[in-house]
Amino acid sequence: MKIFRNILLFLLMLTSTGILAQQDTLKLQREARALLRDGNDLYNKQKYVDASVAYKKALGKNSKYQKGNYNLGNALYQEKNYKEAVPQYELTAKTAKDKFAKAEAYHNIGNAMMEQKQYQPAVDAYKNSLRNNPKDDETRYNLAVAQQLLDKENKDKKDDKNKDKNKDKKDDKNKDDKNKDKDKDKKDGDDKDKKKDDKDGKGDDKQDKNKDKKKQEPKPQQGKMTPQQMKQLLESLNNEEKKTQKKMNAKKAKGKKVKQEKDW
């Protein structure tokens, strides 16, 4: 009888403990819902930072509050804090049991990725959204835009890669041409030196011939002029005289005014 009584007391204690725990859980859930409503009011007033604070407090009361995660993601998105918004949407997509809720979460992930110009993750997110809600035309349109931007990005990367490749080839070609020019300059220099040596040799021969020629030509006697030299001297004196006369005439004519006839 005593044993039965102890068992009964133990069961009563467990039951009361469970009831108290359940009551605490319900209390926290009510507080979380109240904070969520506060956050929604602030969100509608476009006070997104304050709304984020309220949603975080709601999640502090109930970490598994799906609406809290989703709404926090929206508030962060409106703050343009796309990087932190994505994990909130991902958590919603993971825990939501409703397909439409999953589709909306993935759609918003795609939008946040688009804002960050991360086109491949955006395409993947939109596809996941359509898997959960194939009739969503808005998601289908966004997917088409994201795919187009992704194709352009891949094409630009490919073009840049080809440009770098062509640049490397051009640099190698310029290097080869430079080496060829260097070899050519060296060859030209050698040829030039060779020609110079040949020229110097010929120059010496020519100089020796001129020396021999000078030795053979008769030298004019000192103090006497040849007929040719006398003729050149007379012509030079006549030219100087003509120049002097011309200068004199120019001085006389200088300052002479030309009278203009007037038409009365």
Rank of each mutant, 00 (worst) to 15 (best):
K2I: 08
I3L: 08
I3N: 14
L8D: 15
L11V: 07
L14I: 14
S16N: 11
G18C: 09
Q22R: 10
Q23M: 02
Q23W: 02
L28I: 05
Q29F: 14
R30S: 07
A32T: 06
G39E: 08
D41G: 00
N44L: 07
K45C: 03
K47A: 00
D50M: 07
S52W: 07
S52R: 12
S52K: 14
V53E: 05
K56A: 05
G60I: 00
G60W: 02
Q66C: 01
K67Y: 06
Y70M: 04
K80V: 01
N81E: 03
T92R: 02
A93W: 04
D98P: 02
K99S: 06
K99A: 07
F100A: 06
F100W: 05
A103K: 09
E104C: 03
E104K: 15
A105F: 08
H107M: 04
H107N: 14
H107G: 10
N108R: 03
N108P: 03
M113D: 05
Y119E: 08
Y119R: 06
Q120R: 00
V123I: 09
D124M: 02
D124Q: 14
A125C: 05
Y126L: 00
S129M: 02
K135R: 13
D137T: 08
T139C: 05
T139D: 05
Y141P: 01
Q147H: 06
L150G: 05
K152H: 07
K155Q: 08
K155I: 11
D156E: 08
D156P: 01
K161Q: 10
K161E: 04
D164L: 09
K167P: 00
D168T: 14
D171E: 11
D171S: 11
N174E: 13
D176T: 12
K178F: 14
D183Y: 01
D183Q: 09
D185E: 13
K186N: 07
D188S: 09
G189N: 11
G189A: 11
D191I: 06
K192I: 11
D193M: 06
D193A: 14
G201K: 15
K202A: 13
K202W: 10
Q207R: 12
D208K: 15
K211I: 06
D212L: 12
K213I: 00
K214N: 07
Q216I: 01
P218A: 12
K219S: 13
Q222T: 13
G223Y: 09
M225D: 01
P227V: 07
M230Y: 12
M230K: 11
L233W: 06
E235H: 14
S236M: 05
N239A: 08
N239P: 01
E240N: 11
E241R: 15
K246D: 14
K247G: 06
K247A: 10
N249T: 12
K251G: 04
K251P: 03
K251V: 08
K252P: 00
K257Q: 13
K262F: 07
D263Y: 15
W264A: 10
